[in-house]
Design a binder for these strands. Structure first.
Lengths: 121, 121
DNA sequence: CCATTATTTCAATGCTTCCTGAATTGTCGC
DNA sequence: GCGACAATTCAGGAAGCATTGAAATAATGG
């Protein structure tokens, strides 16, 4: 998944706001089941309409998607988009300074890298 | 280097703007030698005063630092801060979804991970 | 000291963002 | 269909951001 610089800016911008970063964290921890808008509003202590605006920003950046379940609307993270965003960041990072990435690898070695992508090459 | 969520927001916000992301890329590619403000203004085609404002944002977020060299002011990236920013992002990412990190590892395997950190464990 | 170059600071403008309250749309159980 | 719940949309105002032109600060060379 390759993306333009404008995409990266939009994704960074979507996360560059306390409430939205909080939403992102909550959705990441929730995993594929996702979280409803109301539940997010309650747990983050934000007005429902305010939160709705933030969720729109996250969705337009492609970082999240929504699905309806009864009366609720469930939000989930679009993992591939998150991945390509970090990818873009890391590639720019490594461009002139490979050693900057070493701590990243360490983060993955502490239980993050070998959990079921299905790719075994 | 541990940082607060507010730090992460400030760092993401600093990069969430086309000109500033361009500056960041240029400084990353330049490496430790850095680039002068005027050179950045010329190569990115931005007015010097406008660029100065953007450089201030990057510095206040901790992502860059400045040093004077004659009449010029040279800007360089603060690699440890960049590293901890990506670290924060990746940790939130991995929290509920370890497989999202796999492509990151691949990015490092393509020539990014084993370049002179001095750590050989 | 003076002119020149490099960069920043200042003040003002237009634009965007964030939040709030009220109204609207969509869904469920009866 | 009706009342209740869940979420979004709309219109508003306050605050912040990006850009510009003009002025100020800093350093170099003669």
């Amino acid at each position: 998944m390759v993306q333009s610089e404008a995409d990266t800016v939009a994704q960074l911008n979507a996360l560059a706001q306390p409430t939205r970063l909080g939403v992102f964290k909550a959705l990441m921890q929730a995993g594929p089941d996702g979280v409803s808008a109301g539940e997010l509003a309650r747990s983050l202590d934000v007005a429902p309409n305010t939160l709705s605006a933030h969720l729109t920003v996250l969705c337009r950046a492609g970082l999240t998607s929504q699905r309806r379940d009864g009366r609720s609307i469930i939000y989930t993270v679009e993992i591939p988009v998150v991945t390509s965003m970090i990818d873009a960041l890391v590639n720019d990072c490594c461009a002139g300074h490979p050693e900057a990435c070493a701590p990243l690898r360490r983060a993955q070695e502490t239980g993050c890298g070998d959990a079921g992508t299905g790719r075994a090459s």
